[in-house]
């Protein structure tokens, strides 16, 4: 019978005492920490000083994945773990990806309709938000002792044509 039989193996290879564990050398742990700190610096630097538009996100995620991999492999001992544990982790990541990608696939389906609607109804500000905030703001102002008589209850500011979501997204990158 060729099937694995862990129970029997445990009993056969049984010799009281320590479970099979891998002790990670301290030098390796310290080296990983230094690498992680360098990568943290790098991610701040690339995000703040280099401007590649949407690619900034990609770079940040690549660096984060590299950091994550180091933590998993060395701090979490995955390099020396049983295969099952790696499978558990990878399966979880695959399913997260599946979940996000399929939900996202669907979310942009109506983007054109939304944009057309926005073009036809140039009121960018959802009324719900400002009124929701106004309900709470007088209390807050009262708490802080402000003279809220002065606050006019005008509705939301008029929207501007130039502020469509596409432009809004692009503008900061230009700067």
């Amino acid at each position: 019978m060729s099937h694995s039989n862990e129970h029997a193996e445990h009993a056969a290879g049984h010799d009281h005492g320590e479970a099979h564990q891998h002790v990670v050398p301290l030098s390796l742990l310290s080296g990983i920490l230094v690498l992680l700190l360098i990568l943290t610096g790098l991610t701040v630097f690339t995000a703040r000083e280099l401007h590649f538009g949407e690619w900034n996100l990609v770079i940040a995620m690549i660096i984060a994945c590299a950091k994550g991999t180091l933590v998993v492999l060395y701090f979490m001992h995955m390099r020396w773990e049983k295969m099952f544990n790696a499978i558990a982790l990878i399966t979880a990541l695959i399913f997260v990806t599946l979940f996000i990608s399929v939900s996202a696939l669907d979310s942009f389906q109506y983007e054109d309709n939304i944009n057309n609607y926005r073009a036809a109804n140039p009121t960018r500000v959802p009324q719900a938000i400002i009124s929701d905030a106004e309900v709470r703001a007088p209390e807050l102002a009262a708490e802080t002792g402000a003279d809220h008589e002065a606050a006019p209850s005008t509705p939301a500011a008029p929207a501007k044509e130039s502020h469509e979501s596409g432009d809004g997204a692009a503008a900061p990158h230009a700067g």
């Binding site: 019978m1 099937h3 694995s4 039989n5 862990e6 129970h7 029997a8 009993a11 099952f84 399966t91 979880a92 399913f95």
Partner: peptide, 30 residues
């Protein structure tokens, strides 16, 4: 199911109820 099977019980000596519970556990976890 991974670590406490009796001596002689490989994966394919598990009763089928165990297999179905294994599949269920995978769904519950994910």
């Amino acid at each position: 199911m991974h670590t406490l099977r009796a001596p002689g019980m490989g994966w394919f000596e598990m009763p089928l109820f165990c297999w179905s519970l294994y599949a269920t556990a995978v769904i519950q976890i994910l």
